[in-house]
Design a binder for these strands. Sequence first.
RNA 1: GCGGGUGUGGCGGAAUGGUAGACGCGACAGACUCAAACUCUGUUUCCGCGAGGAGUGUCGGUUCGAGUCCGACCACCCGCACCA
Length: 851
Amino acid sequence: MSRYEPSQSEQKWQAAWEAAGVFTARRDPARPKYYVLEMFPYPSGRIHMGHVRNYTMGDVVARYKMSCGFSVLHPMGWDAFGMPAENAAMERGGHPKDWTYSNIADMRAQMKPLGLSIDWSREFATCDPEYYGQQQAMFLDMLEAGLVYRKNAVVNWDPVDMTVLANEQVEDGRGWRSGALVERKELTQWFFKISDYAGELLAALDGLKDWPEKVRLMQANWIGQSRGLQFSFDTVDAPEGFGKIEVYTTRPDTLMGASFVGISPDHPLAKVLEAANPEMAEFIAQCRKGGTTEEAIETAEKIGLDTGIRVKHPLDPAWELPVWIANFILMDYGTGAIFGCPAHDQRDFEFATKYALPINPVFVAEGAEEARLSEAFVPMKSETLRYIRGFAGTEVQTGDEGVASAITVAETQGWGTGVTKYRLRDWGLSRQRYWGCPIPVVHCATCGVVPEKKENLPIRLPDDVTFDKPGNPLDRHPTWRDCTCPACGAPARRETDTMDTFVDSSWYYARFTAPHATTPTVAEDAEYWMNVDQYIGGIEHAILHLLYSRFFARAMAKTGHLPAKAIEPFDALFTQGMVTHEIYKTTDGNGRPVWHLPEEVDLETGTLKATGEKVEIIPSAKMSKSKKNVVDPMNIIAQFGADTARWFVMSDSPPERDVEWTASGAEAACKHLTRVWNLCDRIASLPDDLPPREDEALLRAMHRAIADVTFSIENFAFNKAIAKLYEFTNTLAKSDASKPVRQQAMRTLAQLMAPMVPHLAEDVWAHQGGEGLVVRAPWPKADPAMLVEDTVTLPIQINGKRRSEVTVPKDMPASEVEKLVLADETVIKVLAGGQPKKLIVVPGRIVNVVI
RNA sequence: GCGGGUGUGGCGGAAUGGUAGACGCGACAGACUCAAACUCUGUUUCCGCGAGGAGUGUCGGUUCGAGUCCGACCACCCGCACCA
């Protein structure tokens, strides 16, 4: 063996793995299966360190499970539809398809040198017609099953990207990609009925034991279940058809504190009033405008207008309340109408104060007296209250009890119903974009909306499109758009909306089980491989992607594309942290910041290499092109090899936390791997007739290392696994054991390192006479007998502070230990002839002398 | 505002209620070298020459014993946000 030259040996082993087909996933009923999946990448064209970290984690798991005898599925694909391809076409010309496929080729070429254990024969891109055609087939099945529908909806319109955005794609009133202020626009849109599953998606979160608590909580909040009362107010002087106003409240116990009824500016009644009354029309127009401007979002002032309509209080027909239109009431939550109880709701309080409406407390804190309020009194529902204007339950009760009894009273008296509502809205999937999966329906003047026939799938995107005008090229592509009605054969128009790319990523995990099938899935394959045993990805997908996937798996099960056991497709989820880096900044003549790449900076002096100018070092943040704090994985691989990059991203921080990339850390990783290489060389050239010295000690350390590394990998504590490997390497390097024992230890070290640094591990394995490839070698097992020590050193504490220690046989009885402790020099000194108050011996652990 | 998380050396981070700081980085010292780099060996929480003392964001509590459990507070980070 010679110098550590990763560039040569890494290629060699990658070729060897490929030749042996070690990563080809096979359905093998004789073996347990393990499906490990990392969130597939968007083909931007360049891999970044975040990818390296994500895929290395998956690779460690996959390789480890392979060694443990599992039949492993570890696939890779591309989330290939989406706006960047179109944006690139608009900015630079060219076609989104060419841009995408060439990016995929580039990225694949960058990923391969990492030596990941991926079954590349299963690779696909979501923009392959073979993939999206199957997606269209499922869409038709879901349409038939009533899981998809069309409705007129006010949507978020991004005026820059010229597209509809989902609520969750709007951040602070701006489009998440363009940053443009979002406008409201009414369009007919396609929706998945995810709201039908709201309760189930919420309840099933409890079963996802191996998901991070944080993600489950975020989803639970997003689904947003609430229990409340729905009832109607009878109106006075309302327009035709509005004899009642239906409201929903989670605090029916505050009904006696009502001082007005509020309706949304988008409420049907508001629309009628708008048409009839110019003053109202003007007010409503103001509300609509207000909803989207930045100023309104920041100040969020509550405005309202009295409609002149009155309603009768359900508990006292003589009591009339005014009906106001108010800008803070949302049409798409509850019924779009509320009753306002200013005493116990801060929004209502502000509103009532502004418009001089009465503020009547319903309850006070237990033991308190009624007093003038300066803000709304909104106690936790679990708090005990004294009701001074209650109508249900006892005078003193908790808020929860008050709500429950109010619902019971309303139901008993027949004027209201207890209902459960969810914040979760249906999933709008229509996008007015070209580069997405076409929605396979046709609009016919006589037949209406007609599903495309399955034998006509896939409905392919046309290639001859241009992006010189804003908007959807499909809309202005007559030969593609114009078609015949599948039902009556008359001329018709193809749907020009394409699907949200979240649809593409909502089932790719299932497609990987039968990636080339002519149906969306194949029952036997799905049955064997599903579920994903370990899913790994970023926390940024905690809500949308994961919630949509959970819904989609249910929809696929309902339409026969997945077995019932796969409705929760991801058994275990791990969310990894980001890779961060320091930011280097200088300022130009105009005071504007100028960012510099890490390689342009001399860290010793904190200056620019080129000019010697001082740079400001800003603490680490996520690597981003705009701040130039990026390290290109390809440069690292070229300089140090893939194993170094893999070792580093796994070593420094717990995987769920961010890891900071530092040049010194990367060098240290490389140095260590070189040390391992040299150690291997040194051991191989030892004389064969060394006397057996400390053989037992080295073997014990080896079994300790096996146990610790295995435990750490099983628990996703890769940084700790690596710490143990450092420790064991140091022990081995200092050992005087005989050659065969050191060789055995070296081979074991290779096996334990193999999931993280597979190429180096193969080299070491081969060099130490290991049989075959280390990737195929069974994972070593720790011998429990080698893990127990004969003697144990017990720390002696005096009043809880460590003062001394005593070494005793492992299972010495406590009474014997006590004698030894009392004979300890330090203890004798401290006791000064007296007796300890108490002597605590925790066998095998610690001794505490209390004086 | 609501919900969640985090806080340990110069830095990244270890510690089933039982020796705080594993392992790594950095720093320092020594060996090798004409010299430097590389490499190797050692030291490295703080105060103190030392004996010793202090120490896990702050204050309190439980315990023989608290980084870990409980209560209050502070700081930072993340998610949601007019959801009735």
